[in-house]
Design a protein around this nucleic acid. Sequence first.
DNA 1: TAGTGCTAGTCTCTTTTTGAGACCAACAAT
DNA 2: ATTGTTGGTCTCAAAAAGAGACTAGCACTA
Lengths: 135, 135
Amino acid sequence: MDNAPRVSVLAGEPCETSSWDAGNCPVRDVMNQIAGKWSTLLLEALAQRPYRFGELRRLVPDISQRMLTQTLRDLQRDGYIDRQVFPTKPPSVEYRMTELGHSLFAPLSKVLAWAGENHAAVKAARAKYDASELG
Amino acid sequence: MDNAPRVSVLAGEPCETSSWDAGNCPVRDVMNQIAGKWSTLLLEALAQRPYRFGELRRLVPDISQRMLTQTLRDLQRDGYIDRQVFPTKPPSVEYRMTELGHSLFAPLSKVLAWAGENHAAVKAARAKYDASELG
DNA sequence: TAGTGCTAGTCTCTTTTTGAGACCAACAAT
DNA sequence: ATTGTTGGTCTCAAAAAGAGACTAGCACTA
């Protein structure tokens, strides 16, 4: 049941606070996919250049094959990446970011840049919180 | 064989492909928190104005109290929101976004806007994928 | 005075998701 | 003949999330 298509309720309304339930909210519908543990990492890689399955697996050392397959399928299903099979001797598969994917990655990369710039501040906040919890 | 160029995607160079393991990567460390199912939704709410626990619960109808508590704690721990207890008759708790939280929400809101604008394209891609899977 | 509801949670139990690792078929080199 | 490489799938265990009962102190109600 891992790869069963997720049926999403129809909607078209912007995400107002009065309709923040799962079926009606574009933000939730879109974010719930790209907010996965591995999605942003794979998008970051594929924004750079196309990669093959095994390359991505080596690039992200601690992802399981199962989750790599599944995350790539989800990103493909939402139209962010394309999957192309080459009938070579051992068949190879290339994943490539689509235009839609690049248009998403434009604003997303700003968030990733923020993460890099503010990592220290976040770690400091964590240390402070953990210290006050123990005290 | 492993001739993949180890080049950073982002200008600020927050995450090189040679250190994409969990412990070394600021992007993963920061994103894994804000990428939760409920985090962006709560950040979106608290970017507008402070809210109390019960208000947030009513705002997001399908979040459980357990996950609301836990997500708020995580956001507080990373320094994005503050938690303030008022010793009123029935004690009330107010959650308020910090400066760090607002500085994160600036780029994050661009992604949320993208989600609203491109929801239709994503749904179309999904429909196309599901149709080809069934055929 | 008992009953009800509000507050912001916690505790337990069940279901879902994720992770670890074995297995697959074809073909290439050793 | 064994090993390695390709891109997966399959099963089973562990972790995370969801559902719902339960708490304490106070206010209002009957």
